[in-house]
Design a protein around this nucleic acid. Structure first.
Length: 860
RNA sequence: GCGAGCGUGGCGAAACUGGUAGACGCAGCAGACUUAAAAUCUGCCGACUUCGGUCUUGCGGGUUCGACCCCCGCCGCUCGCACCA
């Protein structure tokens, strides 16, 4: 009688074996084996491991275990992205110290994570809030400071009024703070910046090397974010005697110098220095500028906003024709982009056209599509397509690219401007007015200015004795911490009280994992062994945040000689979320649904409809949308509960089996039960295996074929990140094994041994138990990945579908590799085919044979 | 508005470079075992059908011996950027 598989005892037993063998610690010494670095985006210690984490880390674990079986030295570390606002919020709400709160969360989550049976090298674990980590960050920060990549400036910054701190451009989503969701305000502050724009070209150009190993989507998002455009920066001189004081020209930027002959006005941003100067002199201009600022901030408003303008009465001179062109102030011109001023060619730019139509300004087409005549005109839609120049003097007849080059050449020759590449990307503002972050290692001295903290004084540690009862930066309020003497002159000085954006912490942690205890920020030799990360796995939400910052910092640190790698992540996979149906029992008076937890819900099918009832009260429930698991909607399923009920392996299997990894997976109780059944059945196969049972030649041949087909399919599934397909093949292979449950001999044993090794990345505990039950040596963990043999997988006979005119009408079974003439003869002789042809009065005109696949009869 | 992606049974999905659409799982139905239920096992499970078949991958067209796959035009959904000159 077969025994039941007890995950509750088996899983801890196997985890203990791995721990006793220290199975996942990996050495920095050269072993002669190739290296493979698998990394999942490390978690913020928010309190508990949730399903999204679990899916992320299980995917990484599948890759890590598979690569190990393939003979690689696999580095698979784990750490904690431990600085951040929630810790300070907890301090304010509950009076706990952010550090205590964070470290206790880490302890909880580490235990939860260990339940998942991940092949992690825990000896390399660290948290970014540990001075042994952030002190090294301060060291390299100062290195970049020395090299001019860190600077301080007054600037208009994004201010999050809820978190009371500054945000970088990347951290403002739809005008709101990425974390708090509060509407972001503009403030003028003195801030520290990292010169990411210096790497703009390199960051774009590097993307092409990642083709194929990074999702196209992410590469494109980064490219768009950096937003490189090539164009012309040029001066439009004011007409004689008409210049405003202190200005002799308006400097504009354009990507369409080819359309210069179509210029009908020059536009200034409301914040342009000339606009401001005019506003000071004329209250009507001031009123107009104020009108432009009103409502400007939010996206929806910008979209709706009508174009408005103010004719300054000033005129500038066209560089080619000498004609006078009016200067307008317009609300749609951005002061932060380019020079904050443009020349407008309404015929070939929709915004300019909308504006020109409203204010009745000339619209002169200068590019016409192929075939259009001299009368080509635009109505209310600007022409932005390809074509050739006309109405344009010396540019007439040229195509757009040639005309651009020619216009630029003429302007440059005349000394009126030059070709220029500009970027949408701004420097990265890294100052945060918060306590729980890495202190910026700078001391401000009245006499000497900002001075780097000397290296022997690093790390600059955070003080512990603070109060969090008032808003604002607690560091700044600390009675003594900021008062220091100047390292240069010894005079009275003040520490920088801003801390670094936490995205700085996560911009180099992957390099620190190479040797987390190194004296240098990065152990160059160890980093050279392991980096780049071969497979990085995480959510798409970091496409232009973390992933861009990390690429920048890696380049900067390499240029500073701290490491030797430019591109940190050779392969990237962005995984989908874990989502769950929501349930609610009526609405609150406020109109919000009264959410009910899934554990309190029973789903039945009544008359083909899914009906939800509340278990505890029997009340009928409404089934809501399928959404990302979140506490507020109560649609959360905790990994620990699943492990308790079904075991880790069933949970691991389910999060990977139901959807492709890049897509969201919908959690369902039924789904995980199915996975749990699979675990049981696999065990039953191994447990019931009788090594003494007699072999059977026919069964052996088909088992061997299926074994090899499965090896191929599962290997390809794992390598191609199609875990769901790989798992489906494993289910199918189990069905095959079950069909031959009485079989014995070598073929059956090989099939089972292969099964154990193929399931090992997904259900490692079960695989170990099965391996041991089979009497194999050692751990399946160290067993080599099965090798596919095409010859053994090949069927002797193939079933060829017979199509007539592309529709399947019958089939014929023939030996594999039959020649076309044989196939053709067999198809034509097929009784079903003959009957069909006769019934429809058709005769065969042509026969197409795809060897071993299909035969198609063209009939008429 | 611009850019990218997606659309296949009741549901999640599969189909490798154009070659038997719906593998595998969930839900459902029927049966076996059981005093009964659960568990387990076996079978069925796209739609229509006069049981011969016919239709079927969002809609309309095209290319091809053959299209979920390639091309053109629509419709719908999701994501990213958003007055970037």
């Amino acid at each position: 009688m077969a025994t039941r598989y007890e995950s509750k005892t088996a899983e801890p037993r196997q985890q203990a074996r791995w721990a006793a063998a220290d199975a996942f610690s990996v050495s920095n010494e050269d072993t002669g084996r190739p290296k493979y670095y698998v990394l999942e985006m490390f978690p913020y210690p928010s309190g508990n491991i949730h399903m999204g984490h679990a899916r992320n880390y299980v995917m990484g674990d599948v890759v890590a275990r598979h690569k190990r079986a393939q003979g690689f030295d696999v580095l698979h570390p784990m750490g904690w992205d431990a600085f951040g606002m929630p810790a300070e919020n907890a301090a304010m709400e509950r009076g706990v110290h952010p550090g205590d709160w964070t470290w206790s969360n880490i302890a909880t989550m580490r235990d939860q994570l260990k339940l998942l049976g991940l092949s992690l090298d825990w000896s390399r674990e660290f948290a970014t809030c540990d001075p042994t980590y952030y002190g090294k960050q301060q060291a390299w920060f100062l290195e970049l400071y020395k090299r001019g990549l860190v600077y301080r400036k007054d600037g208009v910054v994004n201010w999050d009024p809820v978190d009371n701190t500054v945000l970088a451009n990347e951290q403002v989503i739809d005008g709101r703070g990425w974390r708090s969701g509060a509407l972001v305000e503009k403030r003028k502050l003195n801030q520290w910046f990292l010169r990411i724009t210096q790497y703009a070209d390199d960051l774009i150009d590097g993307l092409s090397e990642l083709e194929g190993r990074w999702p196209d989507k992410v590469r494109l998002m980064q490219e768009n974010w950096i937003g490189r455009s090539k164009g012309l920066q040029m001066k439009w001189a004011f007409a004689a005697d008409a210049a405003p004081a202190g200005h002799d020209a308006v400097e504009v930027y354009t990507t369409r110098p080819d359309t210069l002959f179509g210029a009908s006005f020059v536009g200034l941003a409301p914040d342009h220095p000339i606009s401001k100067q005019l506003a000071e002199a004329d209250p009507r201009v001031a009123a107009f500028v104020a009108e432009c600022r009103k409502g400007g901030a939010s996206q929806a408003e910008i979209e709706q906003a009508e174009k408005i303008g103010w004719d300054t009465g000033l005129k500038v001179v066209h560089p080619f024709t000498g004609a006078e062109v009016p200067v307008w102030i317009a609300n749609f011109i951005l002061s932060e982009y380019g020079t904050g001023a443009v020349f407008a060619c309404p015929a070939h730019d929709q915004r300019d056209l909308d504006f020109a139509r409203k204010y009745d300004l000339p619209v002169i087409p200068v590019v016409r599509p192929e075939g259009a005549g001299d009368d080509f005109a635009v109505a209310n839609e600007a022409y932005t397509g390809p074509g050739s120049l006309f109405h344009s003097d010396f540019l007439n007849g040229l195509d757009i690219d040639t005309a651009k080059a020619e216009a630029i050449a003429r302007i440059e020759a005349a000394g009126q401007g030059e070709a220029k590449t500009i970027y949408r990307l701004r420097d990265w503002g890294v100052s945060r007015q918060r306590y729980w972050g890495c202190p910026i290692p700078i001391i401000h001295c009245e006499a000497c200015g900002p001075v780097a903290v000397p290296s022997e004084q690093l790390p600059v540690e955070l003080p512990k004795d603070l109060t969090f009862d008032v808003p604002g930066n607690p560091l700044d309020r600390h009675p003594t911490w900021k008062h220091v003497s100047c390292p240069t002159c010894g005079g009275e000085a003040r520490r920088e009280t801003d801390t670094l954006d936490t995205f700085v912490d996560s911009s180099w942690y992957f390099a620190r994992f190479a040797d987390p205890k190194a004296d240098a920020p990065i152990n160059k030799a160890a980093a050279s062994k392991w980096l780049p990360v071969d497979q990085y796995i995480g959510g798409v939400e970091h496409a232009v945040l973390h992933l861009l910052y990390a690429r920048f910092i890696t380049r900067a640190l390499s240029d500073a000689g701290l490491m030797d790698v430019k591109e940190p992540f050779a392969g990237l996979f962005t995984q989908g979320m874990v989502v769950h149906e929501t349930y609610y029992e009526g609405l609150e008076p406020s109109g919000k649904p009264r959410w009910v937890e899934p554990s309190d819900v029973r789903i039945e099918t009544v008359d083909g409809q899914r009906v939800a009832t509340r278990l505890s009260t029997g009340a009928p429930l409404t089934i809501g949308d399928i959404e990302k698991m979140s506490k507020s909607k109560k649609n959360v399923v905790a990994p620990q509960d699943i492990i308790e009920a079904y075991g880790v392996d069933a949970g691991r299997l389910f999060v990977l089996s139901d959807s492709p990894p890049e897509r969201d997976v919908q959690w369902s109780a039924g789904g995980v039960e199915g996975a749990s059944r699979f675990v049981q059945r696999v065990w039953t196969e191994f447990d019931g295996f009788d090594p003494e049972a007699a072999a059977n030649a026919d069964v052996d041949a088909s088992l061997i074929r299926e074994t090899h087909k499965t090896i191929k399919a599962v290997s390809e599934g794992v390598e191609g990140f199609r875990f769901n397909s790989a798992i489906a093949k494993l289910y199918a292979f189990l069905a095959t094994l079950r069909q031959h449950d009485k079989a014995g001999g070598e073929a059956k044993k090989t099939a089972l041994s292969t099964m154990a090794r193929l399931i090992a990345p997904f259900t490692p505990h079960l695989a170990e138990e099965a391996w041991a039950r089979l009497g194999e040596d050692g751990m399946v963990l160290d067993a080599p990945w099965p090798v596919y043999d095409a010859a053994l997988a090949a069927d002797d006979a193939v079933t060829l579908p017979i199509q007539i005119g592309g529709k399947r009408r019958g089939e014929v079974v023939l030996p594999r590799g039959s020649d076309n003439a044989t196939v053709e003869a067999a198809a034509l002789a097929n009784p079903t085919v003959q009957a069909y042809l006769a019934a429809n009065n058709l005769s065969v005109r042509k026969v197409i044979v795809v060897p071993d696949r299909i035969v198609n009869l063209v009939a008429g």
